[in-house]
């Protein structure tokens, strides 16, 4: 077992699955946010792994940089929204946020 591409990709896949499961099941909005960060990180692992195994090493890493950027923005805005909701509802159980309904 060497540091081969499928292995790294497998690590990413497992982490991705964990993130998805968390995002779908957590009731606390901040936990959902954290899980989404997990998903994004797993993607980053994949990107960096690909870059290691291609001639153009910059390509995958640049993508990772942009993912980080988006993740940072997402975290900032997402938390701001959660804070707003917390102020109004005193809690952030997303089961109680169901305005997107008929």
């Amino acid at each position: 077992m060497t540091l081969s591409l499928p292995v790294v990709l497998g690590v990413g896949a497992i982490m991705f699955g964990l993130g998805v499961y968390g995002a779908l099941t957590q009731t606390n909005a901040i936990r959902v946010l954290m899980c989404i960060e997990l998903v994004l990180n797993s993607v980053n692992i994949n990107l960096v792994a690909f870059s290691r195994f291609t001639a153009d090493q910059a390509l995958g890493q640049i993508f990772a940089v942009f993912v980080m950027t988006v993740a940072a923005a997402e975290a900032a805005v997402g938390l701001a929204i959660i804070l707003m909701i917390a102020r109004r509802k005193t809690q952030i159980d997303i089961d109680q946020i169901n305005l997107l309904k008929w």
Partner: peptide, 17 residues
């Protein structure tokens, strides 16, 4: 059909995934 529109974001994302 409106029963499908639960209003819960997670339901939507679940369907997506």
């Amino acid at each position: 059909l409106r029963r499908l529109q639960t209003g819960y974001v997670q339901s939507y994302v679940l369907a997506l995934f």
